[in-house]
Amino acid sequence: MVTAVLSDTDLRRRAWEVAAQVVDPEIPVLTIADLGVLRDVRVRDGRVEVAITPTYSGCPAMNMIALEIELALERAGIGRPTIRTVLSPAWTTDWMSEDGRNKLRAYGIAPPQASSSRRALFGEQQVSCPQCGSGNTELLSEFGSTSCKALWRCKACREPFDYFKCH
């Protein structure tokens, strides 16, 4: 057996690379790095500490994500990490990578629109259909199949679709 001794810097980089590959169990085309859920990886006394932040307070995927990170790091021979949940600064869809937005669209989910105003009490939003690209769409419900999604319908191609809400 060959045991490579990694410096803390190398270990940290490797652990980040492995953790960054973990996907969201609800939206498996997105990694937790795409989502901005993966906040930090540190090495403390030879042990890896991974910091993640929840998207929504009650997001049930967080437990699963923590477990997946532990498994991925163990499988990569890095060993079991400590998972730390950080609340501040609060997660926002602004942290979603451009790559992540494109992957979402290709998967059939309209990505969050940076400009939409969450505060408007009876606000109108314009969301393009991820299937046909038409802007002729309507909101069915602001609460979809998971906390982070709303349900929309395209009036051009008649397909319903999920919209990843601005947050």
């Binding site: 307070s57 609460f143 906390s147």
Partner: peptide, 12 residues
Amino acid sequence: MALANMGLDLLG
């Protein structure tokens, strides 16, 4: 779904 979603936010 909306009510369950909001319930989940509150539980969190």
